[in-house]
């Protein structure tokens, strides 16, 4: 009986001792592992297939020149003469027009909830929000903004590989899969054939509307680009890595 009484505290002491030792071992392993930690691979793999790097770098410089010398001055004028609410309204209007692309992309990935939210937002913003200039749907929790889907993401969700990384003249970073997706987006857009909603759609009008759409979105694009360029050791590499991580994340979600 005495032995039994003695054994119990011993059992508990052993158990606690074992746990403490395990914890201590883990701590010691951790303390000695700082240097190893620094050289381990980062959580997000940065491997990007870039066989056309020299051509891409050239196109990147060309785009940088065009952006800095053409689009940026235009954007500066646009933001200077346009009051912020108008700027925001124009951006909202063009985003609203992209509804068919987002709807189809959600449906093609069987994201029915996303399709429902996009449809609700389009219906509310197009009517109460006066053709999408305002976004009254934001106040409804069930129709809160969601991340935009596009055809490139659909291809990714279907398991199609990225292909080589590309820098497209005037359009910026992409890859073969997203380039194909870009043409898919254009085909689904109500402003372009075959789903164009306006008869006798002359190219001048198409060009003007596309140009206005780009101008409305350009302040955000240029601000992000300037920020990336200003904080990057190698802006080309930073854009390549950032774009690829972003797209991989969007496909995985």
């Amino acid at each position: 009986m005495k032995t039994q009484k003695f054994k119990r505290p011993l059992t508990w002491a052993s158990l606690i001792g074992l746990l403490a030792a395990t914890s201590l071992t883990a701590q010691v392993q951790n303390l000695t592992g700082d240097e190893d930690f620094y050289i381990e691979d980062v959580d997000e793999s940065t491997d990007v297939y870039d066989p056309f790097e020299s051509v891409n770098r050239f196109t990147f410089k060309f785009n940088d020149f065009v952006l800095s010398n053409t689009f940026q001055p235009l954007t500066d004028v646009y933001t200077a003469i346009t009051p912020d609410p108008v700027e925001k309204g124009a951006s909202n209007f063009f985003h609203n027009l992209g509804y068919p692309v987002r709807l189809a992309s959600n449906l093609l990935q069987c994201r029915f909830e996303g399709a429902w939210v996009e449809t609700g937002r389009f219906a509310i913003n197009s009517t109460v929000g006066i053709v999408g200039v305002f976004t009254p749907a934001d106040v409804y929790e069930c129709f809160a903004p969601i991340k935009s889907e596009d055809v490139g993401q659909v291809f990714g969700a279907w398991g199609i590989g990225e292909g080589p990384y590309l820098i497209l003249p005037f359009l910026g970073p992409s890859n073969l899969r997203d380039l194909a997706g870009f043409f898919g987006d254009r085909a689904l857009s109500p402003l372009n054939e075959p789903l164009g909603v306006i008869d006798d759609w002359k190219w001048e009008w198409q060009f003007a509307l596309s140009g206005t759409g780009y101008t409305a979105r350009s302040p955000q694009i240029i601000e992000r680009y300037k920020k990336l360029k200003g904080s990057s050791i190698d802006p080309y590499s930073s854009l390549k890595n950032g774009y690829t991580q972003y797209r991989r994340g969007a496909v995985a979600e």
Binding site: T46, S232, S237, N241, G242
Partner: peptide, 29 residues
């Protein structure tokens, strides 16, 4: 958890890891 206590080693904003982005640039450099 480092020798100096718990430390931030990466920030991921909108799926883009800052550490990975700089690692890519520095590797290229």
């Amino acid at each position: 958890q480092m020798e100096s206590g718990w430390q931030i080693y990466d920030i991921v904003a909108e799926n883009v890891s800052v550490s990975s982005n700089y690692r890519g640039q520095i590797d290229d450099h």
